[in-house]
């Protein structure tokens, strides 16, 4: 029995909302970064689902690019995190107010 498309899209939407909840609500900076990964993954699920159901593979290529971009994003973000912790030893997002944001 084949799985209909909307089920994959529903999984993607649920993952996106959970990831957005992590970004908006959590205080720990590391968990905010991990929730960003969740959101990117939900987008990849949507891309691959559409490409598979349309008999196309260009969506898979875009998903590969998303994975590559995510790897570089994590490297840069963790670098910034380490540099930030050297100046101010906290990981709570509401206590990092160096730039008066």
């Amino acid at each position: 029995m084949m799985v209909p498309l909307y089920m994959y899209l529903a999984v993607g939407a649920a993952l996106f909302i959970i990831g957005a909840a992590g970004v908006l609500l959590r205080r720990n900076l590391l968990i905010v970064l991990m929730s960003l990964e969740l959101m990117l993954n939900s987008v990849s699920i949507n891309l691959v689902a559409f490409s598979s159901f349309q008999g196309e593979f260009r969506g898979q290529i875009v998903a590969i690019f998303v994975i590559a971009i995510t790897a570089s994003e994590v490297a840069i973000a963790l670098g910034i995190l380490v540099a930030l912790l050297r100046n101010k030893p906290t990981l709570e997002v509401d206590e990092i107010t160096i730039m008066k944001g």
Partner: peptide, 15 residues
């Protein structure tokens, strides 16, 4: 972009 990220991460974390 991956190369830039590599170099950037090294520069950021270097003491």
């Amino acid at each position: 972009i991956l190369l830039v990220a590599l170099v950037g991460a090294i520069v950021l974390t270097r003491s």
